[in-house]
């Protein structure tokens, strides 16, 4: 019996509206350009904002709606980036949903576990040590806690 693990060509690219996310998408497109059978999923989890951040529920709903619209447009842009690099349109999925996410890294890793992607791709923001200490880093946490997959951190 072979001990080699099955090689999965499913890639999960976790994105938001930052420049480093766009760099990560572009990197995947350039790196895997022309490779057949690679499936990519662009994932954006909308962290449900704390009720405290808004004076009223209406304000909160408005914020969520605007965020959803902006991200839907952005995810379509990212999808076109991959297609532009030779990904077959049917091999690029887009997933966006709202979730209560005290830790975004944990939510991304749960998505990986749920669908058993072989590779996670995230951008790195380039935080200072102070910022990472105060607020934490999604990419560092994913690198620390990811299991049964490969992690690409794109700077």
């Amino acid at each position: 019996m072979s001990t080699a693990k099955a090689f999965k060509r499913d890639i999960l690219i976790a994105v938001d509206d930052s420049e480093n996310a766009r760099r990560a998408v572009t990197y995947v497109g350039q790196m895997l350009e022309g490779l057949p059978d690679v499936r990519a999923t662009l994932l954006h989890i909308i962290p449900l904002p704390e009720e405290d951040y808004f004076a009223t529920d209406e304000e909160r709903e408005r914020w969520l709606r605007r965020h959803e619209e902006r991200m839907a447009q952005l995810l379509e842009d990212y999808r076109q980036v991959l297609i532009g690099h030779g990904f077959a349109p049917e091999n690029v999925d887009v997933r966006a949903y709202q979730r209560n996410c005290p830790s975004m890294a944990t939510c991304i890793l749960e998505e990986r576990d749920h669908r058993a992607y072989g590779t996670i791709v995230v951008g790195r923001k380039g935080l200072s040590r102070s910022e990472e200490f105060l607020f934490g880093s999604i990419s560092s946490k994913i690198v620390s806690y990811a299991r049964n997959c490969t992690v690409w951190v794109v700077e």
């Binding site: 005290p102 830790s103 934490g136």
Partner: peptide, 15 residues
């Protein structure tokens, strides 16, 4: 006092 936390929700408290 509150702030929109990022990855580590309790990092600022620990600081």
């Amino acid at each position: 006092y509150n702030y929109r936390h990022r990855e580590n929700i309790y990092g600022y408290d620990l600081f």
